[in-house]
Amino acid sequence: MTTSERTTTSERGGGAAVSERVVTTRSARANAHIGKHAQTIAIGVVLVVLLIFFAFSADRFATTGNILNLLRQISPTLIVAIAMTFVISTSGIDLSVGSTVALSGSLLAIVLQHGWDPTLALVAILALGALIGFVNGWFSSYQNIPPFIVTLAMLSIMRGTALRATEGYSTPIDGELWIVQLGQGRVAGIPVPVILAVVIAAVGWLTLTRTPFGRYVIGLGSNGESLRRTGVNTRKVGLAVYVLTGLAAALAGVLIATRLSSGSSNAGSGFELEVITAVVLGGTSLFGGRGSMLGTILGALTLGVIANGLVLLHVSPFYVQIVQGAILLLAIFANSKVWARFGAVRK
């Protein structure tokens, strides 16, 4: 009857004599879609402006070498930020990723020094990362302890374990081992970490937007009780996202340690802040229910460009940290105040 007729008309996008109701809903759709993508577009614009600015102000910025170097530098951040996008979309947080980077890098170097097979060492380190994530997820999702507290405790435990294991010294990694290629190798001129980051970003995007799991991650952050009532095992979903950040952080630790040819218990300090900033900058809501993988990629790129550009302009590296913290605060402010006007953001 009329309902379906109207609908088909509006879906075809034609028909001047469409009822007022459909027109309103159409503007609602436009609003919703703009709201969804406004922040991604905004961060994209910021990135382009920064690129142009540094290209003109720093001589060596716009060279292939520098760009590839920049991309390699942000690869670990991006890999963990992809996983963190899932966690934050469920309205969770994982503060332990920086410590996990330190622990996995240190342990990798130590077990290699003990003569472990590099492949076995890699698998063991990744499994350890997944286990750390499992513990985070079990306390947060199954025991309902705020993830902020759980992962803050794990931050301390993992950093302490890394310090104890290395006694504070860094452990060299033999440059002859194949595993060093993970951090230093290139395929067709592209650094291996960059290739890994691109593949993981693509898989992450597909998972968040096109799979039932991604749908449940958004649902969990949007209205967890509602998702539970539809029969989804919400606790499992809530646990799985922390396994993802644990795994990603362990991989990041391996990439950083193999790039530097040494495992250090001081690696990854402030790493969690960088990762969370990239995610929030990209428009993923700290309150859950909204996650943008493309935004996270742009956010990580923006942070990398700022850090790299400032160094090329001979600005003291200490400022980079100040700038990063300020960006996080601004991004959260924009997230909750400015973009909320588009109606798609809650709270």
Binding site: S10, A28, G343
Partner: peptide, 13 residues
Amino acid sequence: NIRIPLTDIPVGG
């Protein structure tokens, strides 16, 4: 017979 013209807008709206 439910009148919701678009199925791709968030229900929050």
